[in-house]
Design a protein around this nucleic acid. Sequence first.
DNA 1: GTTAGCACTCTCATCATTAGAGTGCTAACT
DNA 2: AGTTAGCACTCTAATGATGAGAGTGCTAAC
Lengths: 369, 369
Amino acid sequence: MVGERMNRDERNAPSRSVLDLTERQRSVLRAVVEDYVLNAVPVGSQALVDRYGLAVSSATVRSAMAELEALGLLSHPHTSAGRVPSDLGYRIYVESLMREAALDRADQLMIRHQFSQVQLTSNEWLRLAASILATSTRSAAVVTPARARRARFGHVQLVELADQARLAVLVLGDGNVVQRRLQRGSVEKATAGETTGQAELDVAAATLNAELAGLSAPQVRRKLPKLTPLAAHVGEVLAQMLEESDSIAVEEVFTDGIVNVLEQPEFAGGAKLRGVLEVLQRSDFLEQLVPVLSRRGGVTVIIGHENVNDAMHEVSLVFAPYGTSDSALGLLGVLGPTRMPYPRAIPTVRYLSTLMNELITNHPTENHD
Amino acid sequence: MVGERMNRDERNAPSRSVLDLTERQRSVLRAVVEDYVLNAVPVGSQALVDRYGLAVSSATVRSAMAELEALGLLSHPHTSAGRVPSDLGYRIYVESLMREAALDRADQLMIRHQFSQVQLTSNEWLRLAASILATSTRSAAVVTPARARRARFGHVQLVELADQARLAVLVLGDGNVVQRRLQRGSVEKATAGETTGQAELDVAAATLNAELAGLSAPQVRRKLPKLTPLAAHVGEVLAQMLEESDSIAVEEVFTDGIVNVLEQPEFAGGAKLRGVLEVLQRSDFLEQLVPVLSRRGGVTVIIGHENVNDAMHEVSLVFAPYGTSDSALGLLGVLGPTRMPYPRAIPTVRYLSTLMNELITNHPTENHD
DNA sequence: GTTAGCACTCTCATCATTAGAGTGCTAACT
DNA sequence: AGTTAGCACTCTAATGATGAGAGTGCTAAC
């Protein structure tokens, strides 16, 4: 009776008791997590004693497990099954049990080497980063381009194409490039029907480059009335492009290794992942993550139900921002089952984030040609 | 005995006999394919009579099925199971049995409407096309950008970024834009250490634009010796960029709806799809498809083992080229199990290919703002 | 505090059995 | 000659019984 009451008390305030686990509880929890991550099978007391050098008997481990379960760190699929870590269990593990090592020197070199073999375009970098993350952690990887939080005008070029269409190519202050076709006829409409060829476009571009350098979308808008009709018309389009660049465009997010997750037993069939992928691709999910990650800095781990988004309750995210917070900011990380190899994923994400940092600020990659 | 011998003869020359199926055989094959596509369950003679208005008994259907099996159009998972179409069976179905309708007027309008709501950037178009294909056919969709088979120089712009890095933005003859960072220090090396600012870059760009307009990569290379060191250095990079644009870059291929395929019973678990996705993403698979598709024109269907690539033996492709063959050429289509809703997929792919054609040549999309 | 011992619970693999779906063949029918 | 009913036969898939094994929780002894 008394024992029962105590259990209940502990359950009501788990976060308190969790801080002062006994050394035994700590090593049992660690072993359970690591074994379950490896084998995806609920782990029992005997197996634990066998596989990890716990110098105690299975009965002792059992009682420790029972305590951990009362604390909400482990759970029980059914009476005669082994234990499985709860989200909170993983959290404790990540927070204070995991032996996290920096990435092997060899791994680091291998990754750097791969980057050195690739062309100096940021898209290639992103794709490669996603690919490396995915294969190295056996999870799904997500990498967004580094974008300034507030896009600024850099340089514009207006080109007349063969078929009378016009193209505006806008280089942003952070070096990213966006393009947009100008609607057929709209230019003529803006200039009251005057013919506009490449010459006129060049003049307009020169004006815009002189007037708008370094400005953000609203500032560009304020300048427009002072310009010629043609320049003003194009300027409006440019302002729109700047605005759109302030948010992450879905079509520029690189993902890789989704199959890795699909092959995990907990996602067999694929139906469970559908919601996850939809959230990832269609919504502003990643965008909401940017401020959170950049505020915290370094690697952020979000485990199962810790994620506010319902669809993400059965997966964990290990993400980090990259880029300088005052100019360009991007996101990279991995997504996998809560049963994720955190000690591998975290250093990998961390290393790749610092590497991408290097690449976008100074790009010391050698080009062998 | 005689009957047995006849069967064997027919088996040796199936492609011959296949052309003159009896009307009964034709409608049985059609019904088997359509039922199997719908239910993913081997279909028996009785079920066929029940569900489709065949004015004959199940015994008659059985004998027709046996004939079709002898011809290699149907197969038998085991003795007491129903029939399943073979790759060849699907081929006959697609070739001459399927009642293929053009896309509903309503569907067409719906699709057009979606395109009209999207910004005038080709990336958005591609993403949208993939999304529409995927949801409308419940298969995986693949869309590549339209690229000239032989990229030509259009217009170059050289920009000095804040952090001393330089960016080359190259507009191709077909209106596509590619960019590349210039390696730090390489410019200085090329000009023997002279300082080069935006002014020098502008001069070089003007030279290049004047000298290289309309040229292909090898032609550009031939011009280089006549240029200043700076322009020649940049020109070499531009030539490389032109060469790379001649092939489809993996990072620009848009896919969507992979989950659709994963939810199909034949791919439960995801392991089977791994090879397929790898082929799709890492190799030059799509690129090899371009000439094939553009030669044939219109929609091409590749069913199971018809695909030369081993990994693709359990899937079907329904693809079409788009773009004008002499300027820019792209690819779009769907990938799914051989048990694919061809009568839906084919018109959808066809319609989207003509629509993308329209969009890239003249882009009549209205912009509501 | 730790452990051996033990009763108990639950899963999972195995096996036999059975119902049912579907076939192929033959003989009768039109 | 083509079609059909009838029927024996085959194979799958579902069902249920059984037993081994894994794992637990508890208790009493160390």
